[in-house]
Amino acid sequence: MAATTALVTIEHRDAVAWVTMNRPKKLNALSVELMGELSAALNAAENDDTIKVVVLRGTNSVFSVGYDIAQEVEMGVSTAEQWHAGLEHNIGLSMQVWRLKKPVIAAVSGWALAGGCELAMACDMIISGEDAKFGEPEIRFGSGPVTLLMPFLIGQKATNELLYTGDVIDAARAEELGMINRVVPAADLDNAVEQLARKIALTPLSILRYTKRAITRAYDAMGLTQTVESNLDIAAVLNSADTPERTEFTKLVATEGLRAALEWRDERYGQIDV
């Protein structure tokens, strides 16, 4: 059974719900509208007792390039108060995935960047194709991580390097760091995810729910929720900071488009990227 909205596709394969972000022309950028539909799809899967496992993926060989920067510029988000309200909404989606009462598997192909990387990291497991790329490059134009999950997944030193540089890593490196579970050939991604999802779905639903609750509470005891909430306040100030780089990036988005702004950003780092 499949149901389609403008921006999200939901397909039931026995006890597994495949939830697909369906905004390929924008590389599944997380607009307000997409996030709303995705949240509703996750709620539906959570409340359906015929579903035991959720798979989250993108379209057009891209998971998601993150939050819709062009929409943020168009909305004129600038003050710390405005950023706080918007970022709280963004964090809400990631933490909805994190706290969903059923296991969520991210099937990642292509880009999983910024908010898209955070959304994948919020899933219980990540299986990626060899073509996948992960990272939070937003520091390069004066932004920063919103849902601060990375330190809990890959540790201090690797997190520091990725968040200070904005580097993007390939799937093999992400697996080496423990960010993802495994890498498979791109053509085998759906089959690998389906096999894992079906194996998990053999477990009784109540056992899956309690097991996920136990794991989530363990991370809460380590301070994950407090870290995410504390980072929200810092991220609101960070995103509203008045820097020449942020000013130029925002101007380029408004006048020449997001692609031109990203090219300008990448040119600044291109000569020193290794």
Score class of each variant (00 low, 15 high):
residue 192 A to N: 04
residue 134 F to M: 08
residue 9 T to S: 11
residue 188 D to L: 08
residue 83 W to C: 04
residue 272 I to C: 12
residue 127 I to N: 01
residue 198 R to W: 07
residue 67 Y to K: 11
residue 189 L to I: 02
residue 193 V to A: 05
residue 147 T to K: 05
residue 243 T to K: 05
residue 189 L to N: 02
residue 42 L to D: 00
residue 146 V to K: 05
residue 17 A to T: 03
residue 247 T to Y: 09
residue 248 E to Y: 10
residue 53 V to L: 03
residue 139 I to N: 05
residue 183 V to F: 11
residue 67 Y to V: 15
residue 242 D to C: 13
residue 72 E to V: 14
residue 207 I to L: 14
residue 2 A to K: 13
residue 77 V to L: 14
residue 118 E to H: 06
residue 42 L to G: 00
residue 232 L to W: 01
residue 78 S to M: 12
residue 145 P to W: 08
residue 262 L to A: 07
residue 4 T to Y: 08
residue 156 Q to N: 12
residue 107 A to N: 01
residue 137 P to A: 01
residue 73 V to Y: 04
residue 229 E to L: 10
residue 14 D to T: 05
residue 87 L to S: 00
residue 274 V to C: 15
residue 19 V to E: 00
residue 27 L to P: 05
residue 80 A to N: 09
residue 40 A to N: 12
residue 267 E to N: 13
residue 14 D to K: 03
residue 58 G to C: 08
residue 220 D to Y: 11
residue 207 I to K: 15
residue 114 A to N: 09
residue 123 C to F: 02
residue 193 V to K: 04
residue 12 H to N: 05
residue 146 V to R: 07
residue 127 I to C: 02
residue 9 T to G: 12
residue 222 M to W: 09
residue 201 A to D: 01
residue 57 R to P: 05
residue 90 N to Q: 15
residue 63 F to Q: 02
residue 90 N to K: 11
residue 108 V to Q: 03
residue 47 N to S: 14
residue 255 T to Y: 04
residue 21 M to R: 03
residue 146 V to N: 03
residue 64 S to T: 03
residue 50 T to V: 06
residue 76 G to T: 06
residue 182 R to D: 10
residue 209 R to S: 15
residue 68 D to L: 04
residue 132 A to F: 08
residue 158 A to S: 08
residue 266 D to Q: 06
residue 265 R to W: 01
residue 231 N to I: 05
residue 183 V to I: 11
residue 225 T to G: 10
residue 166 G to C: 02
residue 101 K to S: 10
residue 125 M to T: 10
residue 1 M to F: 09
residue 144 G to H: 07
residue 1 M to I: 10
residue 77 V to I: 15
residue 51 I to W: 00
residue 243 T to E: 07
residue 102 K to S: 01
residue 135 G to I: 01
residue 231 N to G: 10
residue 184 V to H: 06
residue 257 G to N: 09
residue 77 V to H: 03
residue 246 R to Q: 08
residue 86 G to W: 12
residue 188 D to S: 09
residue 29 A to H: 06
residue 247 T to R: 15
residue 61 S to Y: 14
residue 87 L to N: 07
residue 111 W to P: 10
residue 65 V to W: 05
residue 91 I to F: 03
residue 228 V to I: 13
residue 117 C to A: 12
residue 213 R to S: 14
residue 5 T to R: 09
residue 96 Q to P: 12
residue 272 I to P: 10
residue 156 Q to D: 15
residue 271 Q to I: 15
residue 161 E to S: 11
residue 131 D to M: 02
residue 107 A to P: 00
residue 160 N to Q: 14
